[in-house]
Amino acid sequence: MTNWKASGLSKDLPPANVMHADWQGVDLAVWRSASGRLSAWVDRCPHRGMRLSHGFVRGETLACIYHGWTYGVTGACTHIPAHPDMTPPATITATRFEVTERGGVIWIAAKDDPTAPPDIAGFQPLRSLTVQVGEQALLQALAADAPGLTEAEGGLRGTVQIAGLDTQICLMLQPKAQETTLHILCGAGAGPAQVSRWAESLRRQIEDRSAP
């Protein structure tokens, strides 16, 4: 079983962008440099604790929005604007997680993970969508509403009827405290716009049923 957690879709993080990700309850800043290098760090500037996901990417560095402390892709601080002539000490570094991309999905694991993320060849990434139910409740609901999906590494795969067409679907699950984010990929069958509307409808059904 893989330790890599689906944490977003590659297409939602273009070059020179940063976003927040939840990794098993740990807040992370995930960012892509101008040249395309991906990093996942604890979402906390070593200086004053500001969320680095509020920062900005310039070239191959991520800068904190608060005082502009700037970090390179190794995590090491490279520049402190208030002390422009100082070389920052090597001890000032962001805390890194392992991050990689496979099948258009961003995967994050703790450091030195020897496993590989799931193989999801044949599916096109569509969108990420958060459902306000926990992972177990979601799996039960999906078993009832989309019985053609069966558990596969990292989530569910199978065939669903969408707009009258047998459609290949892959759902990668990212469980959070009270909710679950679904990273939706589609294969042959209905078009992406139809799959997107199917996912919206499925979410409404599941949430309506679990409402108190």
Binding site: G8, D12, P14, N17, M19, H20, R127, L129, T130
Partner: peptide
Amino acid sequence: LRDYPSVRLWQR
């Protein structure tokens, strides 16, 4: 806004 990736890119 973290669960709304397209909204994030539109804002940008």
